[in-house]
Design a protein around this nucleic acid. Structure first.
Lengths: 352, 352
DNA sequence: ATCAATCAGGAAAACGATTGCCGAGAAATT
DNA sequence: AATTTCTCGGCAATCGTTTTCCTGATTGAT
């Protein structure tokens, strides 16, 4: 209010209204010190000689005046924004959000915040958002199930990225092992006529998972019949995903005794479709999912599935990204996590 | 274009490596113009006379050099960060993420980005994050299922907030109507002995929903037996939530013919518990959920539930927040959305 | 008593934009 | 021909920090 230059009144700098944040300059002026000094003290910059008395005085005043450093200004100068960007195809999906949950925990703990951008697998959006995130000062990126196609100027960790791009760390599941577990399980239950659901072409796990399954099938001497393979194509995250393809499969009247679903979500849709066709799971058809999302243990029947440690994946990705940002350890370009077979009720022995 | 000050080498200012972003100053220098002018053109500042030729030249160069304005710098000066903060109790939950999905769409469309912070209903975290978000320049806040307790210095819209706080807009469901739909449905199916699941005390919908149910029960002449009321207490977002309380209910051996679950997630848990007790749904016990999350249509049995337009809620909240930020329309302090009864398979007539 | 070393803190230049104001030429008006 | 009005664009301040370099005063050593 009163202007700055005039002198008469003591002014009310002494009465710092709570929840009214003040700037470094104001604080310095109030203390009769230079902003630089105040900054140095408040940041505990090492190698500066400031007597304890002054330090205390500054810190007290900062508290009293409710000084909140302006992060924008700070970041502009110091190049550290404590912010990263997360690229994700879709909000509100089990898989992605569980990973994000792991990421969020870890980041916040490290004092970082994050921007999220969802691109629905649109190439141009992926590009745009990458740029925008960098423009907003993101110091690193975590790309979940997102196909990046060129190197980026800041550290990137891809979750389920499946491309080897210069300088990008990949966190991914041991797909070979996962396929082995899934197919091995069905095989040992006697299943030989197995139907497969392939993921959407734009989902980055699709290909690897499929190749691994093909590999394992071969080793087991299991024939994969093309007419028993259906492909997901819709871009959605509800069980609706798996429903129509199974209907379509059933419509062909080809015999099969088990389905390997692309993930749990689609497995739930698949089961629904089977039931609507008056087939029992697992008595008539076994279904195995993938991911082990939280709901998997509570469906009817409870889902047999391959567990991916989703939150753990998020945490690993984050840790790895932070390491890159801080240059603490030499970056690895691949981090693999192990799947686990979780046997519940949706699979059973083949009818004899 | 050769460089300005030094002379020897041609230097590579002419070879703007793609995906290497350049600053306004560099761009201006390259153009032989003042940064201010470039800024003016790029932002289409009205009331400045710059010939079209120059404008084109600038825009072309900006594209060629892959100029990306530094949002931090811009925001510092202009006080507009195009950023808002979202407070949410938990990541990776159906309800919250569906709302966030609506928010995200709407925000990104408006050129905004957002920080997300999850607080797991911890009071102090809510406070801390609110402050930190403001410190990072958030121009507004959306608080989902989050109990704020004092006014905040920036615009806030609460989703399922249920508190009237000075200046905070609430977006909420018409709970009275929802209760009417849910209870009315069961009542009309002949149910009189109905069990209830109350939400967790820290979930902000809990109280309103409960009060509405009590109100409707009264009007219907339906007695709510205290021993048929169980309360959720765990802070989680998997169906596990509803499982133990229903077990506990069953253990008391009190007779009931229907359960009003707190939400779909807990309804799924409840159904699982009932089935594990050898009760059929809906033949023995009817279960009605709340929210109509995407999976609700695919469970076995498919869930009868009260639909809340979650994405719509997110969109409305966002729109309302942006309006406040831009001061376009006078703020409303409450926005109500209407629920809808979705009858599927988990409810049926009471056995005669 | 002198010189060097330490102490305590100030001055100013960044960081990368935005924005109000101003001025020199060109064009238009009298 | 002299004045006014546009045009086009430059100048410099500013946003709130951080950081590098300095300097004037003390202190300690010889």
């Amino acid at each position: 209010m009163k202007n700055s230059a005039s002198e008469k009144k003591p002014k009310d700098t002494t009465k710092p209204r709570a929840h009214q944040t003040s700037s470094l300059k104001q604080l310095a002026e109030h203390l009769g010190l230079n902003p630089a000094t105040v900054s140095v003290v408040l940041n505990d910059v090492p190698g500066r000689s400031i007597p304890q008395a002054t330090r205390d005085r500054i810190k007290a005043a900062a508290k009293a005046m409710n000084y909140q450093p302006n992060l924008l200004a700070r970041s502009l100068r110091s190049r550290r924004t404590l912010t990263i960007g997360i690229l994700v195809p879709e909000l509100g999906d089990g898989y992605h959000t569980e990973v994000m949950s792991g990421i969020g925990d870890q980041l916040i703990q490290a004092g970082y915040f994050y921007f999220t951008a969802h691109h629905r697998h649109k190439r141009n959006l992926i590009e745009d958002y990458t740029r925008m995130l960098i423009g907003r000062g993101a110091q690193g990126l975590i790309a979940i199930d997102t196909l990046l196609d060129h190197p980026v100027s800041i550290p990137v960790v891809a979750v389920a990225g499946h491309r080897h791009i210069e300088g990008i760390t990949n966190v991914l599941l041991d797909h070979a092992r996962a396929a082995e577990l899934a197919l091995g399980h069905l095989y040992s239950l006697g299943h030989r006529m197995i139907a497969f659901m392939r993921g959407q072409p734009f989902s980055s796990d699709s290909d690897d998972r499929w190749k691994s399954l093909v590999g394992v099938a071969e080793r087991l001497g299991l024939e994969i019949k093309p007419e028993l393979v259906v492909s997901l194509d819709r871009d959605m995250t509800s069980p609706e995903l798996g429903y129509p393809v199974v209907q379509q499969l059933l419509a062909t009247k080809k015999a099969f005794t088990a389905i390997v679903a692309f993930n749990d979500i689609s497995a739930i849709g698949a089961i629904r479709a089977l039931k609507d066709f008056n087939l029992r799971v697992p008595e008539d058809i076994s279904v195995i999912g993938f991911d082990d999302i939280k709901a998997a243990a509570f469906t009817s029947p409870r889902l047999t599935t391959i567990n991916q440690p989703l939150e753990e994946i998020g945490r690993l990705a984050t840790q790895s990204l932070l390491n890159r940002i801080h240059n603490t350890v030499p970056p690895r370009d691949e981090i693999t996590v192990e799947p686990e077979l979780v046997i519940r009720e949706s699979t059973g022995p083949v009818k004899s």
